[in-house]
Design a protein around this nucleic acid. Structure first.
Length: 491
RNA sequence: GGCCCCGUUGUGUAGCGGCCAAGCACGCUGCCCUCUCAAGGCAGUAGCGCGGGUUCGAAUCCCGUCGGGGCUACCA
């Protein structure tokens, strides 16, 4: 796999239209993988040609979420590069000159039809079940004056491509081989507001930025003939195309924020997923595992990356495996690193004091180690450790925990109090030794029966992190108070 | 409706004409371990959409059919 590939230039080109989409990260991952595999560059370009859908702040979110995932770029709007600007709204004059060139060469023409006329046209075509739909070229070959005499005339024209009858519909796709696409309509390439549409802008930018591989979602297959045509008309060599499968909702529709909260990239961070787990999971979508365990770093993924291995079937985005992966990555952290991650997460979510006390930090560090193999998400840590911060007189016994208590509970609690009273050192090990001697050996109880009342007294819960270590964190005074108060409550 | 893409267990995938009476991972079920819960170990569960071909032989090739998806914007 060390064969020399020509250094490739790839890009991801999201639109700043709301919360960044998980599909953007998916595309970025594969683009970046090939850029690294070939020793080339990865470019981030912001496609903000739609003023109506533009969302302030979205661009920054794109930067933040992609960086969080570890999918950094070599050139982009924030870090610059030799092919800037990397924001399409700052490149309007560039597109304008190429549009003019296309009009002069006869490949494009002005169209003054109003949106109303076009809508009516589409409606009529749909009703008549005509196989050939599309723009009727009313404006083609007419001067502004000639067209103005006809109905449905708009003052500001758009520019349309003049799709020839012999337009090439087949192109070669790195993932799928030869692909045939639908015949294009006379696509608008410059809107009435002077902004280019996606089709003109991508082609111009990809060429000017030296992009060698256009890697995007499957939904663009049907537009590719337009792009190929544009390259041809402009006298440019077309890049290689690779169309990745689309991530799906459980019902197999294209993944959407409406049907799937996970379509929002920021959601994963909010839920307490680790970026390395999400990244690993995305590597498994539509691509065979790099190792037997399916655990792989990005470098391992990129090292053997091959377009031919990409699947053509859209994978359902199912969180069950991601949850397992997240648990795996959590377990693989050092306890200190895990504590840091949990603290950073809690801080981000506003669930942690900006100036935590020494005790807060000690409890979190100690507690993190105890729940490490019990977590799937960072967000689960605090709930599992909440009893550590509870006031001793405010430990409430949950109903299901209460139900675990038998008639001998008070006696067990009393014996535990006595056993702990004389402990020289209050470590998990010492506590366990003392409790086993007093409850299991002396009272002849089965361990699970012996320790249940103690667990309930200390945590108020039926399920808790390891009991003895939890007690050590809590300290002797808290333990005694909690044991005593449950015993009192049972009397 | 039209055009295009796709179809292996619940999910993600391996498989590219014989090594497949279909493997792996997650999930699920059970057992073991065990202070609870996890983690870990072991076992089990379930699939080539359907129908025709081609071939000595098909999950793998071809056709049809059914099913899913995408596009069909002065959105990307």
């Amino acid at each position: 796999m060390s064969d020399a590939l020509a250094p490739a230039r790839l890009r991801v080109a999201p639109s700043p239209t709301g919360d960044p989409h998980v599909g953007t990260a998916y595309m970025a991952l594969f683009n970046l993988a090939y850029a690294r595999r070939s020793g080339g560059q990865f470019v981030l370009r912001i496609e903000d040609t739609d003023r109506a859908r533009y969302t302030a702040g979205s661009e920054q979110q794109i930067f933040d979420t992609l960086r969080w995932l570890g999918l950094g770029w070599d050139e982009g709007p924030d870090c610059g590069g030799p092919y800037g600007p990397y924001r399409q709204s700052e490149r309007l004059d560039v597109y304008g000159s190429f549009a003019s060139q296309l009009i002069e060469s006869g490949h494009a023409y002005y169209c003054w039809c109003t949106p109303e006329r076009l809508a009516a046209l589409r409606e009529a075509q749909a009703a008549s079940k005509t196989p050939l739909t599309g723009y009727d070229r009313l404006c083609y070959g007419k001067t502004r004056e000639e067209r103005a005499a006809l109905p449905g005339f708009a003052g500001q024209p758009v520019v349309r491509m003049l799709i020839p009858d012999d337009v090439e519909l087949v192109f070669t796709d790195l993932v799928r081989g030869p692909v045939s696409a639908p015949r294009p309509d006379d696509q608008v390439i410059v809107k009435a507001d002077g902004f280019p549409t996606y089709h003109l802008a991508v082609v111009v930018d990809d060429h000017l930025m030296g992009i060698t591989h256009v890697v995007r979602g499957e939904e663009w297959i049907s537009s590719t003939p337009k792009h190929v045509l544009l390259y041809k008309w402009l006298g440019w060599e077309a890049p290689a195309f690779a169309h990745l499968p689309l991530l799906r909702n459980a019902d197999r529709s294209k993944i959407s924020k409406r049907k799937n909260p996970a379509a929002r990239l920021a959601w994963f961070r909010e839920q307490g997923y680790l970026p390395e787990a999400l990244r690993n999971f995305l590597q498994l979508m539509g691509y065979p595992p790099v190792s037997d365990t399916e655990i792989a770093t990005f470098d391992e993924f990129a090292a053997g990356f091959d377009w031919a291995k990409v699947n053509t079937v859209g994978p359902v985005f199912d969180l069950a495996k991601l949850n397992w992966l997240n648990g795996h990555y959590i377990r693989s952290l050092s306890p200190e690193e895990l504590a840091d991650r949990i603290e950073a997460y809690l801080l981000e979510q506003g669930q942690w004091p900006n100036q935590p006390s020494e005790r807060d930090r000690a409890l979190l560090r100690g507690g993190a180690a105890l729940v490490q193999e019990r977590l799937q998400l960072l967000s689960e840590a605090l709930p599992k450790l909440a009893f550590l911060w509870a006031a001793d007189d405010a430990v409430t016994t949950a109903a299901d925990a209460q139900a675990q208590l038998g008639a001998d509970a008070p006696a067990i609690l009393a014996a535990a109090e006595a056993a702990l009273a004389g402990l020289a050192e209050f470590t998990g090990e010492a506590v366990e030794t003392a409790l086993r001697a007093a409850l299991v050996d002396a009272l002849g109880l089965k361990p699970r029966l012996a320790f249940t009342p103690v667990r309930v007294a200390l945590t108020g819960q039926r399920v808790s992190p390891p009991l003895f270590e939890s007690m050590a964190l809590l300290g002797p005074a808290s333990c005694q108070t909690r044991l005593r108060s449950l015993r009192a409550a049972l009397a």
